[in-house]
Simulated scan of single mutants.
Amino acid sequence: MKRLVAFDMDGTLALSKQRLDADMAGRLAKLLTVAKVAVISGGDWPQFEKQVVSQLPVEAQVDRLFIMPTTGTKMYRHDGSGWQAVYADLFADEEKARIIAAFHLSLEATGFKPEQTWGELIEDRGSQITFSALGQQAPLDAKEHWDPEFAKRKVIQADLKQRLAGFAINLGGATSVDITREGVNKATGLQKLADHSGIATAEMIFIGDAIFPGGNDYPPFEAGIDCVKVRTIDDTRIAIDAIVACLGS
């Protein structure tokens, strides 16, 4: 019996950096009545608050929800009065400086510096450094057309692997490259969730859109966690409906 359903965010629950629509928020609220739910993604807490938490209906059982920013290196829970940080595994200043320098060198070496950008390209999320190729505020249409098959980012990823021994480099979202400490990924995040919640990974389902080698949703699959690969947000709606029907029967 599955007791917890974990989701990627961008491309799975919502479009890149966009809020959950009312239909998806309602489906998550319904899912929370039959299972615990986790959302684990590369964004930091403010992004989760904007995209997920603020969109849930008032009746949602948020005490059954685990919010896991920056690839699960942080966790937030609702304690009845508000959302509180449970843990955060942060980079040292020296690690941050090394990663940011490597990003700049890699972009020069690979030639993937776009002519037009919107906002900062490199974001320090405390426990994760994220490169957003067109900038943090890029319009959705531009992001969806820049690297839909991940080809450009795979070149950047390969170059960064030569520069950053000891770090994990994963692809996610529409234009992102995420860097965490080596061994940190969504599988280790879900294992930390298992340790915290008492729900074994065998009792979890993970749903994501980047379940392919090099994708930031692939490690749970490699770790043997039951996974559902989706291509669109509508696929996620179908998966949620099926899980609710199964667990609620």
Rank of each mutant, 00 (worst) to 15 (best):
L65Q: 00
D209R: 05
T70C: 13
F112V: 11
N185F: 02
D147L: 01
K96C: 11
D234F: 10
G43F: 03
G80C: 12
T117L: 13
D21C: 11
D79A: 09
G224R: 00
S41T: 05
L121H: 06
W146E: 09
P69N: 10
T70W: 01
A60V: 06
P69H: 08
S197D: 06
T188Q: 06
D63L: 13
D63T: 15
A202Y: 00
R231L: 11
P219Q: 10
A158N: 06
P139D: 01
A88G: 03
A168M: 12
G198P: 04
A60T: 05
A38V: 11
K143C: 13
A168H: 13
N185G: 04
E115T: 15
S106W: 04
L171I: 15
I169N: 08
L247W: 04
S132R: 15
D235C: 08
K30D: 15
H78L: 00
L90F: 10
D21M: 11
E59M: 04
V184G: 01
D141V: 13
G173E: 06
A158R: 10
G208V: 06
A202I: 00
I67F: 08
S176C: 15
I122K: 11
S249K: 13
Q162R: 14
F66N: 03
W83G: 02
L193T: 11
T33W: 02
K192S: 04
T175C: 15
R98K: 15
S197I: 07
T71W: 04
P213I: 11
A14Q: 05
S127H: 02
I225F: 03
E115L: 15
I199Y: 11
G111L: 09
K96I: 12
A245W: 08
G111Q: 10
D21L: 10
G215A: 09
E182A: 15
T71I: 13
I199M: 10
S132I: 13
I243G: 07
L190Q: 10
